[in-house]
C-alpha cells in the first residue's frame, strides 16, 4: 500500500523559458520567462486547481508537469523519482500513469476514426490486452464516462461537444492513470453541459482514485472541482492553499482582485460586493517587472515591493503567500 501522504508529483524551483527570435532578427534573441521558480506538491487523490489570467503560465506549467515540454530549470519528481531529464523512452512506462485532457475536444480527436477506435488506441499502444480484452475494456470505459455502448461505432462529428469531451476523458483514463492534467476541459462547452462534465470528473476521481491538476479560467468551476488552489501571476505562484479558504479569504492582493472580479448572480441591486478593478495590463513575460512582479498593478504596493521580490512563504499550515503585506486572517 502506498502512503497516502507521499506526494505523487512534486516540482522544485521549476522554470520554463522559451527563446524567441534569432540572433539575426531586429531585437535579437529574447527569452520568455513562461514559468519561473515554481515549487508545487501534489498529493495522491487531491485536485490542484491552477488559476490566473491568460498568459500567467498555467498551461505551460501543466505541459511541463507531464513532460510535454522540456524543463529549463529545477526538478520534477514523480513519486519521489526524478524525471526532469528522462528521455522519451525512459518516460514511456510513466506516460501510462500521467495523462492529459485538452480544452477543445474536437481538435484533439481524429475526425476520420470511429470513437471506439480512438478510445482503444492507447490500449493497443501500451496495453497487453487481447483484441477481445480491448473491446471489453472500451465498453467498460464508455459506461464509465456515460456514453452508450452503440456510440462506439460513431465518428466524433456525430457527437455534441459534451459527448466529445467524454470521449476525450475516456481516452485519458483508458490505461488507469494515477494523475490526469485537465487543461480547460469545460471551457469550450455550453453552460448547461459544463456541470455534467464537472460531475463526471468528480465521480471518476472517486471511483478510480485519480489525482487531478485542473486548469480553467472560470473560477467558480475551479473552486468546485479543486481541493487546493494555486494562483499564478506572470509565471510564478503567488498564493496557494485549500480551495474554499483561498476563495473565502484571499491573502494576496492579486488573488483578491481576481476573485472579486468574478461576476456572481445576485438578486440584490449591484454594488454590494466590493470589487477591486486592476489597472493596466499583465506585463510582458519578456520584461518582467523588478521586485514583486505584481507591483505595477498592485493597489497596496510600496517602495519595498519595487525592489525586493517576496518569497512564497507558509503563513498557516498549507497556506502559502508571496507578498510582503499579505491579508492574513
Amino acid at each position: 500500500m502506498i502512503d497516502a501522504d507521499r506526494p505523487i508529483l512534486e516540482t522544485r524551483s521549476l522554470a520554463k523559458r522559451f527563446s524567441i527570435g534569432t540572433r539575426f532578427s531586429a531585437e535579437g534573441r529574447r527569452t520568455v520567462h513562461a514559468v519561473d521558480n515554481v515549487s508545487l506538491t501534489v498529493r495522491r487523490g487531491e485536485t490542484v486547481g491552477l488559476v490566473g489570467e491568460s498568459g500567467c503560465g498555467k498551461s505551460t506549467l501543466a505541459r511541463c508537469l507531464v513532460r510535454l515540454y522540456d524543463i529549463t530549470d529545477g526538478k520534477l519528481l514523480f513519486e519521489g523519482d526524478d524525471i526532469t531529464s528522462k528521455s522519451l523512452s525512459e518516460l514511456r512506462p510513466l506516460r501510462r500513469r500521467l495523462q492529459m485532457v485538452f480544452q477543445d475536444p474536437s481538435a484533439s480527436l481524429n475526425p476520420r476514426r470511429r470513437v471506439g477506435d480512438l478510445v482503444a488506441e492507447p490500449l493497443r499502444i501500451h496495453g497487453k490486452l487481447s483484441a477481445k480484452g480491448i473491446t471489453a475494456r472500451v465498453a467498460e470505459l464508455f459506461e464509465l464516462v456515460g456514453l452508450l455502448p452503440d456510440h462506439v461505432m460513431r465518428y466524433p462529428h456525430e457527437f455534441s461537444g459534451g459527448q466529445r469531451q467524454r470521449v476525450g476523458i475516456a481516452r485519458a483514463i483508458a490505461l488507469n492513470p494515477d494523475l490526469v492534467v485537465l487543461d480547460e476541459p469545460v471551457s469550450a462547452l455550453d453552460v448547461s453541459v459544463q456541470a455534467q462534465i464537472v460531475n463526471l470528473l468528480a465521480d471518476l476521481q472517486e471511483k478510480l482514485k485519480l489525482t487531478y491538476i485542473f486548469i480553467a479560467h472560470d473560477l467558480s468551476v475551479v473552486r468546485q472541482v479543486s481541493t487546493r488552489i494555486a494562483v499564478m501571476y506572470l509565471g510564478s505562484i503567488v498564493e496557494e492553499g485549500p480551495a474554499e479558504e483561498v476563495f473565502a479569504t484571499p491573502a494576496h492582493p492579486y488573488s483578491q482582485a481576481l476573485i472579486s472580479a468574478v461576476p456572481v448572480v445576485e438578486t440584490t441591486p449591484s454594488g454590494t460586493r466590493k470589487r477591486i478593478i486592476l489597472t493596466g495590463d499583465v506585463p510582458s513575460p519578456l520584461k518582467p517587472p523588478s521586485g514583486c512582479r505584481f507591483h505595477p498593478r498592485c493597489p497596496i504596493a510600496v517602495e519595498r515591493c519595487r525592489s525586493e521580490r517576496p518569497e512564497l512563504q507558509e503563513h498557516h499550515p498549507g497556506r502559502k503567500v508571496a507578498c510582503h503585506f499579505p491579508t492574513l486572517t
Binding site: A195, R223, Q224
Partner: peptide, 15 residues
C-alpha cells in the same frame, strides 16, 4: 448548475 463562489460546495452540481 452554476457552482457557487462562496459557502459550502455541493458534492455534485445539479446538472
Amino acid at each position: 448548475s452554476i457552482p457557487p463562489l462562496t459557502g459550502q460546495k455541493p458534492r455534485r452540481l445539479p446538472a
